[in-house]
């Protein structure tokens, strides 16, 4: 009975809650993006649906569901149908290992769905599966622009995953663990966020994360002014919205991992300074959310500011800048750890 409760009921409840929060979060992330971009561009953004457009995501969702779902006659129906799902599911699965609160929170069950010993590897591995949806969707459309988009994204994802992996290894060396909970705990015991220990690793991780999520300035697979819509040119209605949701879910994933790895996860700022304990008035999960929101804001800010890279420039940066720097970072970190610790 106890096993049933511990291993089935509690995780199920947590999964349902997280999926619900995440779905709502994604919906309102789209509103946040439109509002922030609008402010950057001297516009108002959505204003009509509800107070200051507060109900806009619901209207958008309804629109996506009601719209006709078109499958091109020359498309590979089976692959075309499942591709958005392949893209969406991994984006959600990653959240099963991301800790939102300390292990003793939520009546001792831990502020996460599960704490596996390879959580970080799991997160990176699973989010790398999502790109298959993009590639298959682009191929299955049997159209030229989507195919070009699919080719671009497969090359882009594979290149940037390598650099991202090496960036993360820097954190691993310091934290000595793949468990995300332990990584945060380590930051607490060391009394310093890993950003200050591994700033280069953070920058590489965050830029590669932008590339992995197809966001400007790395949004080449969908570059609407070049490839019309890239891999999702032929998608419409609900299926298109799945790709869309996956992109935003990935944005949240990258931000969450950045917060967990480099900015102390659920910890409040200066968690070791007792004088600032009044900050504890904000509960740990809220600190986590606040930090994630800051990173999401940077995503949107960058989109509003920068132009897009060209494909060859993108590959050059990935292979000739990010990867060597990340590798050098790993070596230097390792050497310092060996010498002094």
């Amino acid at each position: 009975m106890n096993i049933l409760v511990n291993y089935v009921v509690i995780p199920l409840v947590k999964i349902v809650v997280i999926v619900a929060i995440l779905s709502g979060g994604i919906a309102y992330l789209t509103l946040m993006e439109r509002k922030v971009i609008a402010r950057l561009q001297h516009r108002l953004g959505p204003m009509r649906v509800g107070w200051h457009g507060i109900l806009q995501p619901i209207a958008d969702g309804l629109k996506f569901i009601i719209k006709e779902d078109i499958i091109p006659i020359k498309a590979d129906r089976f692959v075309f149908t499942i591709a958005p799902g392949i893209s969406l599911v991994p984006a959600f699965i990653v959240f099963s290992v991301i800790p939102f609160g300390p292990p003793d929170s939520l009546w001792g069950t831990g502020g996460y769905v599960t704490d596996v010993n390879i959580a970080l590897l799991f997160a990176v591995a699973v989010s790398s599966v999502g790109v298959l949806g993009v590639i298959l969707g682009g191929w299955a459309s049997n159209s030229k622009y989507p195919l070009l988009g699919a080719l671009r994204s497969s090359a882009q994802m594979v290149s940037y995953e390598v650099a991202m992996g090496f960036g993360i290894i820097g954190v691993l060396l310091v934290a000595n663990s793949l468990s995300l909970v332990e990584i945060v705990e380590k930051q607490r015991s060391m009394g310093v966020w890993f950003f200050f220990v591994q700033p280069i690793a953070f920058l590489i991780y965050y830029f590669c994360g932008m590339a992995e999520t197809n966001r400007l300035p790395f949004d080449l697979p969908e570059a609407e002014t070049e490839l019309v819509g890239g891999f999702h040119t032929e998608y419409s209605g609900f299926r298109f919205s799945l790709f869309f949701i996956a992109e935003y879910a990935n944005m949240i994933t990258v931000s969450s991992l950045a917060v967990t790895l480099f900015f102390g996860g659920w910890l409040r700022p200066f968690s070791s300074v007792a004088a600032l304990s009044f900050l504890d008035i904000i509960p740990p999960p809220l600190w986590f959310v606040i930090k994630v929101l800051i990173f999401l804001y940077i995503f949107i800010w960058v989109r509003g500011t920068l132009p897009r890279f060209r494909f060859d420039q993108l590959m050059r940066i990935g292979w000739k800048v990010f990867l060597p720097v990340a590798m050098a970072n790993v070596m230097v970190t390792g050497a310092i750890l060996l010498k002094f610790l």
Partner: peptide
């Protein structure tokens, strides 16, 4: 066209 949308507005 080159991706900088803010300049447009």
């Amino acid at each position: 066209d080159i991706g900088a949308m803010t300049v447009f507005l």
